[in-house]
Amino acid sequence: MRDHPYNGIAAAALQGIVWEKSRHSNSQAACVEFAKLPCGGVAVRNSRYPDGPALIYTTAEVQAMLLGAKDGEFDHLVRD
């Protein structure tokens, strides 16, 4: 793996990292997984496609997303 992986890198190429998912994920493995990278970034992948692409974010970007989610800013995306 390169020191700074790029967006869209194959998740399988990110060796030696630990993928985590929310305890709220469903049993059909349909969830988003996150992994802290040695370079300080955070990788995100779709658990349905574990070898598929991973998106790479800075910790500041992930922090902003988590704060927005906690504040309910994205609730409209999952309402019927």
Score class of each variant (00 low, 15 high):
Pro50Gln: 05
Pro50Val: 01
Pro50Ile: 02
Asp51Gly: 10
Asp51Cys: 07
Asp51Ile: 04
Asp51Val: 04
Gly52Trp: 03
Gly52Thr: 03
Gly52Lys: 06
Gly52Phe: 02
Pro53Met: 04
Pro53Asn: 07
Pro53Ala: 06
Pro53Phe: 02
Pro53Tyr: 03
Pro53Thr: 06
Pro53Gly: 12
Ala54Asn: 06
Ala54Tyr: 00
Ala54His: 03
Ala54Pro: 10
Ala54Glu: 01
Leu55Ile: 06
Leu55Trp: 05
Leu55Ser: 04
Leu55Asp: 03
Ile56Ala: 00
Ile56Gln: 00
Ile56Arg: 00
Tyr57His: 14
Tyr57Met: 05
Tyr57Trp: 10
Tyr57Cys: 01
Thr58Pro: 00
Thr58Lys: 12
Thr58Asn: 07
Thr58Arg: 11
Thr58Ala: 11
Thr59Asn: 08
Thr59Arg: 13
Thr59Phe: 08
Thr59Met: 10
Thr59Gly: 02
Thr59Trp: 12
Ala60Pro: 04
Ala60Gly: 08
Ala60Phe: 05
Glu61Arg: 14
Glu61Ile: 09
Glu61Tyr: 06
Glu61Thr: 11
Val62Gln: 00
Val62Met: 04
Val62Arg: 00
Val62Cys: 01
Val62Ser: 01
Gln63His: 13
Gln63Glu: 14
Gln63Gly: 08
Ala64His: 12
Ala64Glu: 11
Met65Asp: 04
Met65Leu: 14
Met65Arg: 07
Met65Ala: 08
Met65Pro: 03
Met65Gly: 01
Leu66Gly: 02
Leu66Gln: 12
Leu66Glu: 11
Leu66Ile: 14
Leu66Tyr: 01
Leu66Met: 13
Leu67Asp: 12
Leu67His: 09
Leu67Phe: 08
Leu67Gln: 13
Gly68Trp: 03
Gly68Leu: 06
Gly68Thr: 09
Gly68Asn: 10
Gly68Gln: 05
Gly68Val: 06
Gly68Pro: 02
Gly68His: 05
Ala69Val: 09
Ala69Pro: 01
Ala69Gly: 06
Lys70Glu: 11
Lys70Cys: 08
Lys70Met: 05
Lys70Asp: 07
Lys70Pro: 03
Lys70Trp: 03
Asp71Leu: 07
Asp71Gln: 09
Asp71Pro: 00
Asp71Phe: 02
Asp71Ala: 15
Asp71Lys: 09
Asp71Arg: 10
Asp71Asn: 12
Gly72Trp: 02
Gly72Val: 06
Gly72Met: 06
Gly72Leu: 05
Glu73Ile: 04
Glu73Met: 07
Glu73Thr: 05
Glu73His: 11
Glu73Ser: 10
Glu73Gln: 09
Phe74Asn: 12
Phe74Tyr: 14
Phe74Cys: 09
Phe74Pro: 03
Phe74Ser: 11
Asp75Gly: 11
Asp75Pro: 03
His76Gly: 10
His76Thr: 11
His76Phe: 12
His76Ser: 15
Leu77Asp: 10
Leu77Phe: 13
Leu77Pro: 07
Val78Gly: 13
Val78Lys: 14
Val78Pro: 03
Val78Phe: 15
Arg79Val: 15
Arg79Trp: 12
Arg79His: 14
Arg79Met: 15
Arg79Asn: 15
Arg79Pro: 10
Arg79Gln: 15
Arg79Phe: 12
